[in-house]
Amino acid sequence: MVAVPQAKDIENKENTRKTVLSIDDLHVWFELKRFGFGHAGYVKAVDGVTFDIHESETIAVVGESGCGKSSLMKTILALYKPTKGKIVFDNKDLSELDNKGLHWYRSHVGYVQQDPYGALAPFMTVQRILEEPLIVGGIKDKENRIQRIHKAMEEVKLTPVNDFLQKFPHMLSGGQQQRVVIARAMIMEPKLLVADEPVSMLDASVRVEILKLLSNLQEKHNLSVIYITHDLSTVSYFSERIFVMYAGNLVEKAKVRQVVDNPLHPYTMALLTGTSEPDAKNAETFKELPPGEPPSLVNPPTGCRFHPRCSKVIKGLCDVKFPPEFEPEPGHLVACWLYQ
């Protein structure tokens, strides 16, 4: 495992590391309307999320679909406005930025999407796709733009560059398409990269290649990366910390090793149980999984949101009171009454 020594290196400097993005008590609610008007409640997609990302740190947000991780990500990308709470980037509160400030913020945040084919406009050549953020970012000099495109493509190893510039996305393989997406995210030289399931649509043999590429870029450019995924098995190669998200809340935040080797929250344990490793013995046993499905975000359960599915539920506590974060071991935060 490469990630481990590297993580340790950085651990020593932990306290001196600068915070890049800080999220404080973030709520993203969407209003539900009845017949196009009239209030019918809220979808509480993100409901009180707090965390910091340091310079050149990779964090993973792990959760199932509908847990609010996409809404969290899009709010960080300034595509949604927070209902409550603050996002602070480089000591600037996003809600206080004017148009120009927002432009500045957007040029510092790169976005790698899940479906590489969908993420590339099918009618644009690779060159045009990569040129777009530069044009939008106000780089007027064509020569300069072409230079930066070449540089970005070399960084994602789409070489020889000239073979790819005039190609349309459908002429590229899935892995190459994802490289273009990454090149586009990197072309403005961002400080923060948001990667939304960057490998889930790719073939197994390519996944690792793309993850390694992201990891190399992260090291080389001191990037902070938010890696959003539902697949725990890819996380350990690529992140320092994991945030486990369930029904709009972060239920466990810790270093990767801590989560994988010593999961504390019952939901995290279930996720780990659910993750398969290639082993023929798997076929002989049934997996112990929590019953039911994640709750609706319109009317989440009272108390701990996982309590209706939890096998370790404490009656009268878990179903009544929302659990605060506990820190049973240093740096390992968990929102579960078992650890009070």
Partner: peptide, 27 residues
């Protein structure tokens, strides 16, 4: 579509999205 989401994320203006992203797709 996600390429339009990407364009919004890198700050393309509404008119740019309409004329450079939405309409060419329809040609």
């Amino acid at each position: 579509s996600s390429y339009i989401e990407a364009a919004r994320a890198y700050g393309a203006s509404s008119s740019r999205i309409i004329f450079s992203y939405l309409i060419p797709r329809m040609i």
